[in-house]
């Protein structure tokens, strides 16, 4: 038994292939049997992945969910940013340039709007919870954009490390919620064509959230949503510690 476990750990990435295949197979079976095709198999698989990540986090105590359990460490490689981005780029094979061009300006607009909107919401929540200094308010606002914009902004502004941790947590909540909620609300928000997918990617901005949300909704929309989402973090890191922070400073006196 220990030899088998040792071998599985040694071939971590290969083990991860089997694990994901089993999760997806089980999810597709559930989708067909239990949900009668009402819910996408991949939506169930992503939710299952998140539940396993919670279990893994509790068991191993690390920050990488199930990947911190040594038997499943290959998931960290397979699900890491490198393979994720590689697969996202591959989905562009078959995307229509025309659809991108037609919605180009609204895609760009949605990125800027998405960053500002999330920042403002995060800042308002921070104020509601009693923060009164511009640095903390801006860091938490930036975290509501993505869990990368938060710490980048917090570090640039010299925020307290507890506040930076909060901003990462806000971004994580956002990413996970986008993964789970997108297939549930897709119909109501009209997320069924390349244009709305571009807007969705720009407004949500969390690459992992958008990647999983669209995978669970309609994989054909992935390249459009991912396209705008990949610009979001960069724009957020540009705006949050500069223009947006500066606009919070005058508010500080009122609090």
């Amino acid at each position: 038994m220990t030899t088998i476990v040792a071998l599985l750990e040694k071939n971590a990435l290969i083990t991860a292939f089997v694990v994901v295949a089993l999760i997806l197979g089980f999810s597709n079976w559930l989708a067909a049997r239990l949900f009668r095709g009402q819910i996408h198999g991949s939506a169930i698989a992503i939710t299952l992945g998140l539940i396993l990540a919670y279990w893994g986090g509790l068991t191993a105590g690390g920050s990488k969910g199930l990947a911190d359990v040594s038997l499943f460490s290959g998931l960290g490689v397979l699900g890491g940013a490198m393979f994720r981005d590689f697969a996202i780029v591959a989905t562009a094979f078959g995307a229509e340039m025309d659809a991108l061009k037609r919605a180009g300006w609204v895609g760009a607009l949605s990125v800027v709007l998405g960053v500002v909107l999330s920042f403002v919401i995060g800042a308002v929540v921070a104020i509601a919870f009693g923060f009164t200094d511009a640095v903390s308010i801006s860091t938490i606002g930036a975290g509501a954009a993505t869990y990368i914009v938060g710490p980048v902004t917090g570090t640039a502004l010299g925020a307290d490390s507890a506040v930076i941790a909060l901003s990462v947590a806000a971004g994580l909540v956002k990413a996970i919620l986008v993964m789970v909620a997108t297939p549930l609300v897709a119909k109501r928000i009209g997320l069924n064509n390349p244009q709305s997918a571009l807007i969705y990617g720009g407004l949500m901005g969390t690459t992992s959230g958008v990647a999983a949300g669209l995978a669970a909704t309609d994989p054909k929309l992935v390249p459009y949503g991912a396209m705008t989402a990949t610009f979001y973090t960069g724009v957020g890191c540009l705006l949050a510690p500069s223009v947006l922070y500066l606009s919070v400073i005058p508010l500080q006196g009122l609090l």
Binding site: I23, S42, A45, G49, L50, L172
Partner: peptide, 24 residues
């Protein structure tokens, strides 16, 4: 793509997100 996204979901720091308190 979808299998990779599932692996990505399984390596999220869900514990931190869930136990981070109401503000986050």
């Amino acid at each position: 793509y979808i299998p990779i996204v599932i692996a990505m979901a399984a390596k999220q720091n869900v514990v931190a997100a869930v136990s981070s308190g109401w503000l986050a």
